[in-house]
Simulated assay, not measured.
Amino acid sequence: MTNKDVGTPSLLNRLVSLTTIRDIELFELSLLKTLAELLKVNQISMYKLNPDNKTCWLSAYSAKLIEDGNKRQLSESQEIYTSEIIIPDEIRSAQLWVETTKKPYIHLQSEKFLVIYPVLAASKIESMLTFELPHMLTEGEMLIITSLLSITHNFRSLLDESQKDKLTGLLNRQTFEANINKISSLILNAELGRYQDTSNRNRRRPKTGTEKFCLAIIDIDNFKSINDKFGHVMGDEVLLLLSYVMKQNFRSKDLLFRFGGEEFVVIFHAPDQADAYQILERFRTKIETYRFPQINTITVSIGATLISGMCHLASEILGRADQALYYAKHNGKNQLHFHEILLESGCIEDNKESGSIDFF
């Protein structure tokens, strides 16, 4: 491929198309698809490195021609963050090579060249792009990659900034609705997919053991008294440190929001309620024992609920967690309660309108 293979108007059109996207995960997948089309490769992957530098999240885009008799069609397989995996040895070696030589990693294997290209953020490797070519990477192809990554990096920085809370760096409230709706749709579609035809019109009941997501609202106890006693500067310091502990306690792909004031929301994957409870209780204990400058200690109250196909409306999910939070705040504070457990024990009634949060 030469520079003439991909003209400037074509590249600009791709960039215009990319920069109309406001969803970061969709943006990343579209970037992979655009690179695959411009480089004329069937498959391209991105290994997004976690801060621990031990695990990563894998994204992949593939497009292959399938022949069915006389028909030829393009089949696209798109996956976003399919799983969190241990960084493969080859990616680890490529990372070391790039850090040492400041050049992409290129390795000939099975008559094809494996290319592993770094994606930088603040002069640090954030992700590794991988694809195969039947030839050495040309100057024209390198220009395509570097140009696209440079411009899209700047755009993503702006996109990140618009979606982040300015004080804590967590996701802001405006991004909540899109994220919760995406997860709700994912779960609902997965549960509907569990119904399978057995004999024409007959369907099986859903299998048990469906994986779940958990939503929790975290509220700092007596935060007003902290501001009154120590001032708003120290109050902001508490918010910053609490958000720091959140980032340390939860995984990099968990969704962490500052919802307003002293209230935070977290959405994370959990195989069951017991696992979700353990994760949140560990965080509550961590905050209880954390030493905040001047203030010494603070506590948080947490209300949580599981996201399922039976409860998939954003306002309803939030309302259930808020009802559990209200119970925690009015029964001693520094507690974690799940809506489902409170409901089963008769401590609360199932009132869908009980959520006190003004949802948008």
Rank of each mutant, 00 (worst) to 15 (best):
A324R: 09
D228V: 07
Y61V: 11
F283P: 14
L192D: 09
T198Q: 13
G140S: 08
I287D: 00
G7W: 07
L215F: 05
G193A: 05
I87H: 09
A274Q: 10
R282C: 02
R251N: 05
R282V: 08
I287E: 00
S17V: 10
T8M: 15
H135W: 03
R92K: 13
Q73L: 13
E262A: 10
I348E: 12
V98W: 02
F213N: 06
K64M: 11
A178L: 06
Y117H: 10
M234D: 11
T82F: 12
I357K: 03
I183K: 06
L280N: 05
H269Y: 14
S77H: 13
Y290S: 02
I295Y: 08
H330C: 02
S252R: 12
G7Y: 12
L29Q: 13
S162N: 14
C214G: 02
I145L: 14
K224L: 01
Q43L: 01
C214P: 04
L108C: 01
A324K: 08
F176T: 12
T297V: 02
L336G: 11
D221Q: 07
T2W: 03
E161L: 14
N181H: 05
E237I: 03
A304T: 11
E211M: 09
K33S: 13
V233L: 14
D228A: 05
F213C: 03
L240H: 09
N172M: 05
L39A: 10
A121I: 11
S75M: 06
S150I: 04
G209S: 10
N296E: 14
K164F: 10
L171H: 01
I220M: 07
L343F: 01
T285Q: 15
F155T: 07
A121N: 07
K207L: 15
D358F: 02
D272G: 01
T146L: 07
Y81R: 15
D160F: 10
C347H: 13
E340K: 03
L39F: 02
S184I: 09
L108S: 01
G231C: 08
A314D: 13
S225D: 04
K286I: 01
L133T: 01
H339W: 04
N227D: 02
G169E: 06
E99W: 03
A304D: 02
T82S: 14
P9I: 12
